[in-house]
């Protein structure tokens, strides 16, 4: 079974990574690859920017969604899409607690509740968390979908969101909010023992030192939060590879030039590549050390560089995966 197939056999995938590494493209690619294999897929995206009501939707755009909806809607064969919304989640939660949609709406719109939501960013994230949970309950748990893929925002924010259950449970250890958070944790967290892992995070990175370093930090942070890191995907991997002898040869030519006070065009790009290899190796070492029992070797998935805009890139990746 290919590495990609392994991933799309899971139930929940959280796609994370530094800004600009191609998370959304990878999300769309995985969803399409799964749908092609007959999986019923749900893709979800978080609202962009600080304003919850803003309707910009990069992931929706890849599926030709003109007006992204906060309700689940079919976007292509076997794929449904949903834009998560903190307001939707907050209201859903209130309705669940108060058992009346009318009362919940009145409470939600009351000034004190609005003020509290405004000053406390945690409640915004709680809303999104609840919406995600609700989505899981109504799809994968109900049995009408096989795979739920969430395109998380860039690193910092993603950590905030996955950290949420821990910090809020410290604050509110019992009651409805706590029950909700624990239910969410039971879905997302690493299984104890050797049970097969059905959910976890996929870190997307570029073959460059900085994003790789950040991915390494992200991986250890997620593992600390008991979220399994299923895979590292190296996006835009260059098509050319270098042997150890070739690297040594180039190193000495560059060093020689440096001694003569010369800088070679291309050496900056070369150094960047050299550093990437080093960081990638330490990433794999760290992940192997972290994996319980060290049963499986942690190997990244390499997605080769594709030409064109993001839709063409998705098509290119699918064509490549079809060949393998």
């Amino acid at each position: 079974m290919s590495e990609i197939e392994n991933l799309i056999n899971k139930h929940v995938l959280l796609i994370t990574g530094k800004g600009g590494v191609g998370r959304t493209t990878v999300t769309a690619f995985l969803a399409r690859a799964a749908a092609r294999k007959g999986k019923r897929v749900v893709v979800a995206e978080l609202p962009q920017g600080d304003d919850t009501d803003e309707a910009s939707s990069p992931l929706g755009g890849l599926f030709n969604v003109a007006n992204p909806s906060t309700r689940l809607e079919p976007v292509s064969e076997n794929i449904r899409f949903c834009l998560l919304s903190s307001k939707e989640g907050q209201l859903g939660f209130l309705t669940n607690v108060m058992r009346s949609q009318r009362l919940a709406k009145a409470a939600f719109e009351s000034e004190p509740i609005q003020k509290l939501l405004e000053i406390a960013p945690t409640f915004r994230e709680l809303g999104i968390f609840y919406h995600f949970l609700d989505l899981y309950r109504n799809t994968v748990k109900e049995g009408n979908a096989d795979l739920l893929i969430l395109d998380l925002p860039a690193t910092g924010h993603a950590i905030g969101l996955t950290q949420l259950p821990h910090s809020v449970l410290r604050l509110i250890p019992t009651g409805k909010i706590a029950e909700t958070l624990k239910e969410g944790q039971s879905i997302l967290y690493r299984n104890s023992g050797s049970l097969e892992q059905h959910s976890g995070a996929v870190i997307v990175s570029l073959p460059e030192a900085l994003p790789l370093r950040e991915s390494l930090d992200l991986a250890s942070e997620l593992e600390k939060q008991k979220i399994a890191v299923l895979k590292l995907i190296i996006n835009r991997y260059p098509n050319q590879t270098w042997s150890a002898e070739e690297l040594t040869a180039v190193d000495s030519v560059i060093a020689e030039a440096r001694d003569q006070g010369k800088k070679m065009r291309g050496s900056h790009e070369y150094q960047r590549m050299r550093q990437s290899i080093g960081v990638l190796n330490s990433f794999i070492t760290t992940m192997n050390a972290a994996s319980p029992g060290g049963a499986t070797e942690f190997a990244p998935i390499f997605l080769h560089e594709q030409e064109g805009n993001s839709r063409q890139v998705v098509e290119g990746l699918l064509a490549q995966e079809g060949q393998s």
Partner: peptide
Amino acid sequence: QIMSAVLGKKF
């Protein structure tokens, strides 16, 4: 009352 119902009494 709303706060207690939603957030729990302690919080």
